[in-house]
Design a protein around this nucleic acid. Structure first.
Length: 356
DNA sequence: CATACGTGGGG
DNA sequence: TCCCCAAGTAT
């Protein structure tokens, strides 16, 4: 009587028991086995931060957030401007606005406790298909299909899925659901992601070290790197604009204003800047200045976004009186706490290098 | 289904 | 320098 080989999930979980990454928001498998479950607030916060963002980048932000706002109610009570200020530099700022809105919803409509199922989590702002499944699995051990970029890669290789992403995602989700065990689904989800992050990597995957290689069709065919097949991406256009840094001579404070709530860098702070237009027209010059002053050119900041490249001409001027329009003076020692995106920090560095 | 939406690190 | 990509979501 032949003995059935272990299922994929068992092989993976045994590997995870020995090789799980140690992460600030994670309860290790041995502790989970002893009945310790993670704080849903920390799971949620980490998942939002990790959307399209590397673990290395997230760690310091996560530490600052949980130190400053230990629970979801603390975060809900914070002014949005403070949350945006703490998020500055992480990118995708809609995440921060949704994070705050979600905290307030949990505090006011759920009594300060996160919903416990993927379906109910899915209704909260900033929580989509992936994040709802991840929180449900990791914080509440619901056997939900958790499909992030790592899992897309692992599963597309396991089954040698030829359908290019994003169309192939449907089949990947179905396959992931079939692989997900009823026992330890939270560890299984984290194990899949750890495997994708450390062994089943985009280039040069370490198939020799892979605990589920015997289950993998792409490895058997000797072509793991061709998966996942992806649709070619469009080329990114260029845009150009101008930023105007008004400086108060006395203390070196700069004049900032708040950007529109929606759109690029929504809700974040900036020195007044023009619209960013298609780059055919060359330098805008001071015609786009928000008010007349002795504007002096001080270089061009280049910044790459996901869907376009930006060249931002920077001008500076010493201003004694308050400029027209809404805004505030921000001295250099206050810049750390301002909701300044990285682009705008580059602008300030170009305009006021002496104060940095 | 396609597009908008940041940033930093690695090859 | 440039391209890819990293625990995606909203519209």
């Amino acid at each position: 009587m032949p003995i059935a080989p272990p299922p994929l999930s068992q092989d993976l979980l045994e590997w995870y028991d020995r090789h799980a990454r140690t992460l600030p928001w994670r309860v290790p498998p041995q502790a989970r086995a002893a009945g310790i479950m993670p704080d849903p607030y920390r799971v949620w916060l980490s998942e939002i931060m990790l959307q399209q963002t590397t673990v290395a980048t997230v760690k310091s932000y996560f530490a600052r957030f949980v130190n400053r706002w230990p629970g979801v109610t603390d975060l809900a009570e914070a002014p949005e401007a403070e949350v945006l200020g703490a998020w500055a530099g992480l990118g995708y700022y809609a995440r921060a606005r949704n994070l705050h809105a979600c905290a307030r919803t949990v505090a006011t409509e759920h009594g300060g406790a996160f919903p416990t199922t993927a379906a109910t989590l899915r209704a909260l702002p900033g929580i989509g298909e992936y994040t709802s499944a991840a929180i449900a699995a990791i914080a509440f051990d619901e056997p939900a299909a958790v499909v992030d970029g790592n899992v897309e890669r692992v599963v597309s290789r396991l089954f040698a899925i030829e359908t290019p992403l994003p169309a192939g995602k449907k089949e990947i989700r179905i396959r992931t659901g079939e692989l997900t065990p009823d026992l330890r689904p939270g560890d299984f989800a984290q194990a899949m992601m750890d495997l994708g992050a450390t062994i089943c990597t985009p280039t040069r995957p370490g198939c020799i070290l892979c605990p589920i290689r015997p289950h993998c069709r792409a490895a058997a065919e000797g072509r793991p790197e061709v998966f996942p097949v992806k649709k070619p991406k469009a080329e990114v256009p260029s845009r150009r604009g101008a930023a105007f840094v008004a400086i108060r001579p006395g203390d070196g404070a700069v004049w900032l204003r708040k950007r529109a709530t929606t759109g690029m860098l929504g809700g974040m702070s900036e020195p007044p800047s023009s619209n960013w237009n298609a780059r055919s027209d060359g330098e805008l010059g001071t015609t786009a200045a928000p008010f007349p002053a002795g504007w002096q050119a001080c270089g061009t900041v280049l910044h790459g976004f996901t869907h376009f490249k930006l060249a931002l001409d920077v001008y500076r001027a010493d201003i004694e009186h308050d400029p027209p329009g809404a805004g505030w003076w921000s001295p250099p020692e206050a810049w750390d706490g301002e909701a300044l995106p990285t682009l705008m920090r580059k602008v300030l560095a170009a305009a006021a290098p002496a104060t940095r």
